[in-house]
Design a protein around this nucleic acid. Structure first.
Lengths: 339, 339
DNA sequence: CTGAAAGCGCTTACAG
DNA sequence: CTGAAAGCGCTTACAG
C-alpha cells in the first residue's frame, strides 16, 4: 500500500500543495469551503503528513523524550513509573505528540542521549526524573537549550521548569499522626540517598522529630527493592530499642517490611506500625492493608506533559506545585501496645 | 547552541556532503583514512544526522512503536509490561533504534494509531501485544504492510512473525505438580477471557484435569486486578466443595488471593495452596512467599525486538519460541491437610 | 484567497 | 575514490 502524500491530496482537491498545508494546519490562506473539502479528502484517503518532512521543514518533531535511569527489576516492580508514563502519554496523545522512551544506565549515558536526541532533532523536549542535588543533567540541558521539564523538586532545577509535590509537608503530617497515636520511637527506611527527594524527606524527618522531641529518629538507607527493604527492617527490628513505627519510602519496601515483622513474630499494628509512601493498589493487597501516603501519579504525569508542551510552544510557564500526598490510614497503624 | 549539520562536517573535513554520508553509514566510496578523519570530526563537533532528514530521504525512521491497550492502574501494578519494555528498549538502543510508546483505549484506537504511524512514516515497525482470537489488528497490519512482530501466540498471527512461550506446557506442569502433592480439587483464577493466552491456558487446564480425572476443575474469570482477584477467591473459597489449590493468572491476583485466605482463617499452604503466574519480585515479598511460574520477561522483550529489527531489515525470520515458564516452589504450596 | 518556488538536511544514483 | 545534483514531503515567505 502506497502512503498518500500532500501532492495526492492537492491533486484530488485541485489546489496547490501549499493550500493543503494551510488547510491542514489551520492557517489562513484558504477559504473555509476549500479547507473543509481538503480535510474531507485527506481523511478519505488516510493522509497524515510525514512527521519527517514536517520536522525537516522547520516545524517541530511532535515528539518528546523520557529517559529512565533505573534497572529493569526496579522499573518493573515500582508502579510509579508506569503510572507516570500513562499520565504523560494520555496528555501527549491528546495533542498528537509521541513519546520516545529510552532506558539508560547512568547520568552520563542519559546526557549523551539528550545530546543525540537534540542533534537528531528527534524530540522537541524532554522530561527529567529522579533529580539529584548538583544534577549534571541540568546544565547540560541548559547548554543545549533543549526544552525540558523537571519532574521533581523544589529547587535544584536551574532555569528549567519543574512540577513537584511537597514531600516535606507530607512527611511531617505522617510523623505527627504517628505521634498522636502515641508513638515515640519512629524509624524510616529511605530510598536512594543520592536522590533529591530522599534528601528533602530526610531533612524534614530530622526536623520534625527534633521539634516533637522524639527519641533517636533513625533513617536507614535502601534502594527501593523488597530485598533491601527487608534487610533494613530486620536491622531496625533487631536493635536494642526497636522502633514502634516505621515509614518506608516506597510501597514495595513497606510490604517487604510487613513480611519481616510477621516472620519475626511481631504483630502489625500491635507491635509495629507501618506507613508506605506511594499508595499503589499493592498496599491493599496485603494483610493488614497498609496505611499509605498517596497522590494521583497519572495526573502528575499529565501536568508535567502540559508544562512541557507549553515550554515547547514558547508560552510563559512558572512551574507547578502539584497536590501534596495525603495519608490514608488503614490497618497497619495503631497506638503502640504498652510494654 | 546551533545544531551541527552534515555540511559543517564536510566543510571542516574539506570533502563533499556525500562523502560524509558514506563515511558515517559505512558505505564504500571513501578511503579508510578519510572515513576516520570524518568520524573524528563528527564526534568532535557532536554531530548526529537529523533523523527527520534521514527518514525523508528514503532511509528508515529508526524508530519502532509499541501501543499498550490497558488502563493506567493495570499497567502500573503489573510488572510484566515495564519489564517487557525494559528488555525491548535495551535491544533497540543497542542498535540505535528509538521506541515510541502510546497508550490506547481499545483495538479500534490501536489500529488508528498504526495507520497514523504508517502514514506519518513515524515508525519502521510495531510490536503487537495481548493477542486475541480473530484479532482485527492482524489484517489491518497486513494491509498496511507495516513490519510487525506479535508478542504472543502460537497461532492466530496471520502472516506476521511472532515470539511466544508455551503456556499450555507450563500449566500442565503446574497441575501435575499439585496433583503429585495430593491435590484433587484445583481451581484457577483466569485473566481476561478475550485474550488468546487466557484461552490457551483454559483449554490446557481443562484437558489436563480431564486426563488426570480431577473433580470439577473450575475456572473463574478476573481482570488481573487485586480487587477482582480477591472477589474471585472469596467466591471459590465460599463454595460447598472448596478447592485445596488455586492457580492465578498473574501475581497480583495471587497476592490478593493469599490475603483473602488469611482473612477467611484458612492457612496457606495448610488449607490452601497458591500458585502465581508471573514470578515477579512481588511473590517473594509476601508471607509465605508464593510458588510461581516465571520466566525472563526482559529477555522475551529483547528477543521480540531482535525479530522486529530483522523483519524491518528484510531478513528471513521464522518466529521464535521463547523459553517455557518454569515452576519455582516456595512456601505457598504443600500437600493438602487431611480433613 | 491562491500558486510557484525555495529550503529544511540528509541519501544515493550518476558522472568524472 | 570523489563531487555535483536530484529528490524525499513537507512549510512558509513571496508574488500575484
Amino acid at each position: 500500500m502506497k502512503r498518500p502524500t500532500i501532492a495526492d491530496v492537492a491533486r484530488r482537491a485541485g489546489v496547490s500543495k501549499g493550500a493543503v498545508s494551510y488547510a491542514l494546519n489551520g492557517q489562513p490562506g484558504v477559504s473555509e469551503a476549500t479547507r473543509q473539502r481538503i480535510l474531507a479528502i485527506a481523511a478519505e484517503i488516510g493522509f497524515s503528513p510525514s512527521s519527517a518532512a514536517r520536522a525537516l521543514s522547520g516545524a517541530t518533531a511532535n515528539a518528546v523524550g523520557l529517559a529512565l535511569c533505573r534497572p529493569a527489576r526496579i522499573l518493573g516492580i515500582e508502579p510509579f513509573f508506569m503510572e507516570l508514563i500513562s499520565g504523560v502519554e494520555a496528555e501527549l496523545s491528546a495533542r498528537s505528540y509521541a513519546l520516545t522512551l529510552q532506558v539508560v544506565a547512568d547520568q552520563e549515558a542519559e546526557i549523551a542521549v539528550y545530546r543525540r536526541w537534540w542533534a537528531e532533532r528527534r524530540v522537541d523536549g524532554v522530561f527529567v526524573c529522579d533529580l539529584r542535588t548538583d544534577d549534571r543533567r541540568i546544565p547540560a540541558l541548559e547548554e543545549l537549550q533543549l526544552p525540558a521539564v523537571v519532574i521533581g523538586g523544589p529547587g535544584h532545577t536551574g532555569s528549567l521548569t519543574s512540577v513537584w509535590s511537597d514531600d516535606a509537608a507530607a512527611l511531617v503530617e505522617t510523623v505527627e499522626y504517628l505521634v498522636a497515636l502515641g508513638h515515640r520511637r519512629i524509624a524510616r527506611v529511605g530510598g536512594l540517598p543520592s536522590l533529591l527527594h530522599t534528601e528533602i524527606r530526610t531533612d524534614a524527618f530530622g526536623e520534625v522529630c527534633r521539634r516533637l522531641g522524639l527519641d533517636e529518629a533513625a533513617t536507614v538507607w535502601s534502594d527501593y527493592t523488597g530485598e533491601e527493604g527487608a534487610r533494613a527492617t530486620r536491622r531496625l527490628l533487631s536493635s536494642a530499642n526497636r522502633p514502634t513505627a516505621v515509614i518506608y519510602d516506597n510501597d514495595v519496601m513497606a510490604i517487604a517490611g510487613l513480611s519481616v515483622a510477621q516472620e519475626m513474630g511481631l504483630a502489625v499494628p500491635g507491635d509495629l506500625s507501618i506507613v508506605a509512601w506511594d499508595d499503589s493498589p499493592l498496599c491493599q493487597l496485603v494483610h493488614p492493608p497498609l496505611t499509605a501516603l498517596g497522590r494521583d501519579i497519572p495526573a502528575y504525569g499529565a501536568h508535567a506533559a502540559r508544562q512541557l508542551l507549553a515550554v515547547i510552544a514558547g508560552e510563559p510557564v512558572t512551574g507547578l506545585q502539584d497536590e501534596t500526598a495525603h495519608l490514608t490510614p488503614r490497618g497497619s497503624t495503631a497506638p503502640p501496645r504498652r510494654g
